[in-house]
Design a protein around this nucleic acid. Structure first.
Lengths: 135, 135
DNA sequence: CTATTTGCAAACCCTTTGCAAAAAT
DNA sequence: ATTTTTGCAAAGGGTTTGCAAATAG
C-alpha cells in the first residue's frame, strides 16, 4: 500500500481519505463493481458521492493501478499487480483469481507461436462454477 | 447460415427479414457494435429501429448463436461457432480472430492442471497491435 | 387466425460533466 | 496560496420497456 502512496506523490495526486479508503478496499481483492465500492466506502464516509468513486477509479485506471474487467458487460475493478488470470463463475458471476504465473507463461509461449506475432499482453478468463455454487 | 434458420424454427422464432439481415451481417465476422449493426441494416431497412437490433441480439445471445465480447467495456458481437481466440488491438480497438484450436487445447490443458478444477470454457484475449496500426 | 415481432417513444439505467465549497500540499 | 478534490445536481449515452400496428407461420 505505501508504494501506492508514493506513486500518488510522484503523480502529484493528493492522498485524500476517500481515495485511500478506496485503495484499501480494492486491496481486499474482491473485484467489486462501482456500486459495491460506493456502498463499502459510504460506511466510513456517509457523505461520499458516486461521482467521487467514478473519478477516483478513472484516475487509478489511468495510473495503471487498477484494471477494469468486464465479464458479461459488468465493470469490475481489480487492483492486482501480480500477474494472474481469472475464473468467472457461470452461476453467480463471481471472479476468482489464479496466481499460477508459470502456467500463464506457458500459455503465452503457446499462443505466441500460434499467432507468429508479438504479444503485448495476455488476458485469460476461464468459465467455472465456483466452490460456493457447486455445493 | 441455413442451420441457423433451422435453429430459429426449432425455437419457434420467426425468420423475419430484419432478423435474417442481422444474422447475415454478423456472419461477416467483423465483431460489430450494436450501433454498427444498426447502421449496416438500415441500408436495407431504412425504417428499422435500434430497439429491434437490441431485441434480436438479446434473443440470439439467449440462443447461444451470438457471443458478447466486452473489450474495454464496449459490447461487440461475435457469431463464430468455431473455437477461436481474440486479439484486441491496443491502438484501434479492433478484434482479430485466431483459429488455432490446437493452441487453445494446449492452453486449456495447461490451465486445467494449474487450477485443478473442471474448466467449463476458456476465453483467451491477447493484446496486440494489429497489422494496420503497426504500419 | 394467433403469436411473435416491429417501430416508436418514454423510461431507465450507468457514467460523465460543471461548478462552487472544502481540503491537501 | 495554489491546485486538486469533493459532493451535488444536471446532462449524456446506451439499453430496455410498453404498447399498438404489422407480419410470419
Amino acid at each position: 500500500m505505501s508504494e501506492i502512496i508514493e506513486l500518488l506523490k510522484t503523480r502529484k495526486l493528493k492522498a485524500t481519505p476517500q481515495r485511500l479508503a478506496i485503495l484499501e478496499f480494492l486491496n481486499g481483492k474482491t473485484h467489486p463493481t462501482i456500486e459495491e465500492i460506493y456502498e463499502a466506502i459510504k460506511k466510513g464516509f456517509p457523505s461520499i458521492s458516486l461521482a467521487t468513486i467514478y473519478k477516483n477509479i478513472n484516475t487509478l485506471k489511468e495510473m495503471g493501478v487498477v484494471t477494469e474487467l468486464n465479464p458479461g458487460g459488468k465493470a469490475k475493478y481489480d487492483i492486482n499487480i501480480t500477474p494472474h488470470f481469472h475464473g468467472v463463475c457461470q452461476n453467480c458471476g463471481k471472479i476468482v483469481d489464479y496466481f499460477d504465473s508459470a502456467a500463464m507463461e506457458k500459455c503465452k509461449d503457446t499462443l505466441s507461436e500460434a499467432v507468429g506475432e508479438d504479444i503485448k499482453g495476455l488476458n485469460i478468463t476461464i468459465d467455472i462454477v465456483c466452490s460456493d455454487c457447486s455445493k
